[in-house]
Design a binder for these strands. Sequence first.
RNA 1: GCGGGUGUGGUGGAAUUGGUAGACACAAGGGACUUAAAAUCCCUCGGACUUCGGUCCAUGCGGGUUCGAGUCCCGCCACCCGCACCA
Length: 858
Amino acid sequence: MPRTTSMTYDPSAIEAKWQAAWADTELFKAVRDARPKYYVLEMFPYPSGRIHIGHVRNYTMGDVIARYKSSCGFSVLHPMGWDAFGMPAENAAMASGGHPKTWTYDNIDVMRGQMKPLGLSIDWSREFATCDPDYYGQQQALFLDMLDAGLVYRKPAIVNWDPVDMTVLANEQVIDGKGWRSGAEVERKELTQWAFAISDMAEDLLDSLSKLDKWPEKVRLMQENWIGKSRGLQMTFKLSAPTHGHEGIEVYTTRPDTLRGASFIAVAPEHPLAKALAEDDAELAAFAADVRKGGTTEEALEKAEKRGYDTGLTVENPLGGTLPVWVANFVLMDYGTGAIFGCPAHDQRDLDFAIAYGLPADPAFKPVDADALEIAGEAYVPSKTEVVHYHFDKPFPLKDKRDFATGQEAIDAAIDWAEAQGIGTGKTQFRLRDWGLSRQRYWGCPIPVVHCDTCGVVPEKKENLPVTLPDDVTFDVPGNPLDRHPTWRDVPCPKCGAAAKRETDTMDTFVDSSWYFARFTAPHAATPTDLDDAAYWMNVDQYIGGIEHAILHLLYSRFFARAMGKTGHLPQGTEEPFDALFTQGMVTHPAYVTKDDRGRAVYHLPEEVDVSARTLRASGEAVDILPAIKMSKSKRNVVDPQDIIAQYGADTARWFVISDSPPERDFEWTPEGAEAVHKHLRRVHRLAEDIARADRSANTADADLARATARAIHEVTQGIEGFAFNKAVAKLYEFSNTLNKSDAGADARRDAMKVLAQLMAPMVPHLAEELWTMMGGEGFVMRAPWPKADPALLVDDTITLPIQVNGKKRSEVVVAKDAAKDVIEALVMEDAAVQRALNGGAPRKLIVVPGRIVNVVV
RNA sequence: GCGGGUGUGGUGGAAUUGGUAGACACAAGGGACUUAAAAUCCCUCGGACUUCGGUCCAUGCGGGUUCGAGUCCCGCCACCCGCACCA
């Protein structure tokens, strides 16, 4: 390419130069000082192998905020770490015979090396990986304190069991109800597992959502529904004849107003009564075993065909008569009492069941305007706020002897009635279950307890932490290597010294990510946190991550912040650790797939595919191209940022990923977009060169440029503050176009370019430093105080009001900013388009909204 | 199945509390410069009709409220995210 100017935009030189300068001055080291602090955090990455554009977008957003806040005078903490435990490392070990530890740390090295050229303002001195013994040892200390505080306990839990490999499977490893390796039909199996008592805090976790006013409404709503508080009725149905030590069946219902329509009782297969009956009923035992087939996800359970087994037992209905007792696969032991009464008329699941087994469907209420309610294939389920007709063929105890009520009023009335009759009590119930944390896997944080035949479960002594993972393990057979590692597993009891066994389960990786934000405030402390550091840096002022974490990760972190407060690891006021939350959209890209000889999908990296020929480059095999979906390692539809940086530089990648789509929405990577961004940055660089060379004696001030500058400052600042980076970028395009066309004097254009450099600095920091220096700016642009817009320049003296006729724009009128209504009216009536529309008549109505619009109704 | 979200030109998107639909870009087409290409610069760019003044249609679909609806309400459709052992 011929050089048309003496200097050209050379990102590789510029970026290396400024990154070195930043590093030399430790510009991003977070320090406690007199400034107000600002803690910005992006959800830390899993070290899957290489960074992809999704990472670039996520960390660029955080970096924009971090650099902006720094320019605004805050002491900024912007750390980075690695969520490093998890299944993929073990899968890689199984596939290629390596070690999860080697695989993980190698990946971290690669990804750190890919991340640093992005020029993120990260304090790398705080970096850690959750698989560092230093980190997970502190996590074990936390666990012991939580155990001591009664926040962790053991309970039975249901897992996916592969009967061929004899191993527990993750939900992800269950495909269409079958184990991913063995292909065997998965069963649900009960194991004793460790659990965090998160449901004890359900009420607080729910109530405190209202304080999170800088969280997206949708996330709060999702958490609210997940916690699922409901007030219902708990009541006991007396068995017609007591059996197996059971006098009755306790049920819980959120719709006691439907009791009149009850036509059966159903209990979960794991219900104590069902288990007792199954002991001497082979047919029931076979049924229970059969419905155990399949995975544990709520989705699988909900979608499964409704199946039941008639026990032949009956219970007394307090409203008269009896109800049959069934064992049903759609009743969950985890929720309520593990037993329900079925009301087919007003619950679709109950109706499906009733139709399958010939049970009646009698309505408890009907629509206000209906004579009767006929139930065919669809249950009648109005919302609880809708008024319906309760008191029709049979009495219903509504207040004031009314006939009509909303569902909620009727529920309350039914609970009052049941309590008065002594047949049940009102009870608040949460959908939220305790958090089972045990995993039967190697690559996780060991649970620091020992099982002793005489002492029971004994916590490891704190001075023995960390309980480190052994390195000498193999993955050639299914199951947990810790389980078959005698020298690691067999230890003396910490209490009595007798031969005992370590807990071989490790912790859910969600535990690792539930407190890392607190560890970042003192990453080298000898205790999980340092209270002084935590008091200074907490809370996270701005947390940024994917919407896919809207429920579990965020809820678990909120729980951990409370638990750490209770165990003295966090100061007061950190119960809600994330002041503001932003959920960014995903980066999407087409996916490329072929089928293996068993018909299963095999995904391929974009660089392995000849897209135009739709074939694999290596083999020529035909490839299916799926439309753009979330970039993910499993789908291999990832773009390598390294290639982009090599071609265009980091600033181009950074600018592009936040430029077009709103940050909360998905973003599709396209090669053209990157090219166009690069051209623009080159244009700005060239413009700066022109200005730097311009004759400084020709020095005319320019009011238009000053106004444009003020508006740019105002709107870019608003865009960054409001997480509308795409709008801030659009404004920067506009401002640089204006500056490019401006014929103002050199000093005026130089001042404007300095402001442009400052406004661009959060997005394209390297180029901004370069522009700043070219314009004679002193020090780092990032250290220059954020520019302020002169308010006087933001308001215009005159405004253009659109004139509508019958709601459609027909003309416009220029008026003084504060013109009186009657002045505007007079001008409007003179307008040619208005006169044409009126055709000599008078308007039916004239609407003048000052400062906005005029509408003439004819 | 349940919970949450999204839908605007060929494309990504913009549009304070209901007030000019399409800012800013991408792609495309035309032109300038050049021996040529690249680069750069300029112009056009939702659709239909037009007497070139404009007129009508148009924000997933169908209704409604309003002087005025992309925005509010009701009913659909399509796609996406989550569903507790993927991270």
